[in-house]
């Protein structure tokens, strides 16, 4: 699999071209950043960094506890279900919009960039916006045929301080020989 993207607006539908570099899904999380949930990431990665486990170290270095920096996206990920929600709730809606728009049932992420700014702290309420940066022309990899796309996400805290910027490259595809199937 090769992660390659390009802005190939000449072969893109007009409605997709119109979305490039336009912020979408500007919204705030429905829950606060919480220290307890950070421990799940620390446990999952067997991360014993005392900055996250020892309050004295956290007080000394960061004036109190902070969230594990690479958990940035976690604080904007929706609950799998909540009252009034229609269907599965997904984090990176632009990615799923593109899968549906191009009728590509499968997708994987190939590249991820994290740029970390102000630390996220317990009690913060994070907001974000998603920006489609590019969509490739049709590509074929070992997984199947489809398109690559790049989506940036800007994260802010409740004081409108930039806490991070993330960029994903996704590959939406249809497996060889697959002529049907629902977007997943």
């Amino acid at each position: 699999m090769t992660a390659e993207t390009e802005t190939a607006e000449h072969d893109l539908p007009d409605d997709i071209v119109a979305l490039i570099d336009v912020p979408q899904y500007e919204r705030a999380a429905t829950f606060d950043v919480e220290r307890g949930y950070s421990y799940n990431t620390l446990a999952a990665t067997q991360n014993g960094n005392p900055l996250f486990w020892d309050d004295e170290v956290a007080d000394e270095l960061t004036n109190g506890p902070i969230a594990v920096p690479t958990t940035l996206s976690l604080w904007m990920r929706p609950h799998f279900w909540e009252p009034g929600a229609d269907g599965e709730q997904v984090a990176l809606q632009v990615h799923f919009d593109l899968k549906a728009r191009f009728d590509l049932p499968e997708a994987v992420m190939t590249d991820n960039t994290l740029i970390l700014h102000e630390p996220v702290r317990p009690g913060d309420r994070i907001s974000h916006r998603q920006v489609l940066r590019s969509v490739s022309g049709p590509k074929t990899t070992k997984l199947g045929s489809g398109r690559f796309w790049v989506i940036d996400i800007e994260y802010l805290n409740q004081r409108d301080e930039l806490v991070g910027v993330e960029s994903y490259t996704g590959f939406g595809y249809r497996r060889a020989g697959d002529t049907g199937g629902d977007a997943s």
């Binding site: 992660a3 270095l61 920096p69 590249d111 960039t113 740029i115």
Partner: peptide, 17 residues
């Protein structure tokens, strides 16, 4: 950060899977 210790602060990270 196992290597840097707790004072290490990651600023940027890009990875290709």
């Amino acid at each position: 950060t196992d290597w840097t210790g707790p004072r290490g602060r990651i600023g940027r990270m890009t990875f290709r899977m």
